[in-house]
Design a protein around this nucleic acid. Structure first.
Lengths: 234, 234
DNA sequence: TAGGGCCATATTGTTGACAATCAGGCGTGA
DNA sequence: TCACGCCTGATTGTCAACAATATGGCCCTA
């Protein structure tokens, strides 16, 4: 049992596993995003700890980190529940995203380094290839899309912004995406918008870059919301 | 020694102490903001635990929460350090604040309830009284200022925004303020700007409200930065 | 029969001991 | 003299047992 667990660690672990809490956090995070831990379900420390082959200590730390990512809500002495992603909640996420990424794009236009501009263009080329090759399979594009947004945040040279977006909000965004993982014709449109944004950034037009990014994100929300409404009709 | 600590806790504790971790977190937070725990200093779990009369468990939880507030930085197996508030860091904080509060103000203009508008006006009246009475003593105004910004966030009806601002960013803002706790003639000016903002909100002009709030915050940063530069000359 | 208070159980909060890991000093050999 | 590796002390990570607290069912009463 113990041995099997240990094995799982070294093989399956995708990246960060310096501590048990890291590993469990990483795993729980994916479980929540993909719905293996259903929304609103209660989290019982002892059960999960046994399930993951660790004691309650590391598991508690993992849960606290998930709380910081807004993936679970905790009430003292009453336990934690997986967050429920209502339409209102998703709307809230997109609003915060719009604000934060709007700012990051504006700052990126001001402070981005030449090398980072080149890398952005390169990234978009790869996206285009992926779209051409896979056509319908939007998944790679989605991963890439996140990458794109994170890189712009990094280009803003604002560490707090990077942390807020990539550690705190990123997982919620992924979760929103997972619920609306369809959107057939969007990738090409998104790519075009991404190009416009990078163009504005490389021309150091922060004001325009911010507007384009905000429009890009609020547009994505419009589409996602329509998808949700359609789902309710099914 | 131990006894004295206990006493301080039960008397000074302003509100939240449902658990030991809550209490210690609250206290450490204040220690960091006021500089009793100096910036960049290493945090040793066992020392702090003994000092606060708790075991390492709750203390670790407290530290993790401080990490979520960006007040400490942690490295696995290497411990935690109190954040150092460089000018760059403060600049980053104000940028994020501008983005988040700009959005909250825009949303507040759209979704605020009549009752909340009344409360905002009332709050500003109290601020005016405080300024008239205390003249130089800016402290109350400062507390009130935070209250003002948080209330607008609440009026936006965006829970994520409220949480991000009041739990995650608020303490960093307080820390910035503590370092530049002078600014003699600012309160009156700030009050005027606050009035303009509430006016725009009550007229449901979200676009203007956002612009005014962003200008208000970036103006505050300009003043704070000048204060910092002057400090370097001393 | 409905409502309210009490008790048992499950779950979280807390603790101290143990194991794993890191940082710095020391000695050894080239 | 310098570089390398080991070793020791300190510090964090992990665990399992204990204490405090909430949830839900039961009984009693009106």
């Amino acid at each position: 049992m113990e041995q099997a667990k240990k094995e799982t660690i070294s093989t399956l672990d995708t990246g960060s596993s310096r501590t048990l809490a890291d590993r469990v956090c990483h795993q729980l995070k994916d479980d929540i995003i993909t719905g293996r831990l259903s929304q609103g379900s209660k989290i019982v420390e002892e059960d999960l700890a046994r399930e993951h082959g660790v004691s309650r200590g590391p598991l508690r730390e993992a849960i606290r980190r998930l709380e910081a990512m807004h993936l679970v809500q905790r009430i003292p002495h009453a336990g934690a529940r997986v967050v429920t992603l209502s339409e209102k909640m998703m709307s809230d996420v997109y609003s915060v995203r719009e604000a934060l990424e709007g700012m990051s794009t504006r700052l990126a236009a001001e402070f981005i380094k030449p090398k980072e501009v080149d890398e952005l263009w390169l990234l978009l080329e790869q996206h285009e290839k992926n779209i051409d090759e896979t056509e319908g399979t939007v998944y790679f594009q989605r991963e890439g899309d996140v990458d794109f947004h994170i890189r712009i945040a990094q280009a803003s040279q604002n560490q707090l912004l990077v942390k807020s977006l990539s550690s705190e909000l990123y997982q919620l965004i992924r979760m929103c995406r997972y619920r609306t993982a369809k959107a057939p014709s969007r990738p090409t449109k998104a790519l075009g918008e991404h190009r416009q944004i990078v163009d504005a950034i490389s021309r150091r037009d922060g004001e325009l870059a911010e507007i384009l990014m905000r429009r890009h994100i609020s547009g994505a929300w419009q589409i996602a919301r329509e998808l949700l409404l359609k789902d309710y009709h099914d």
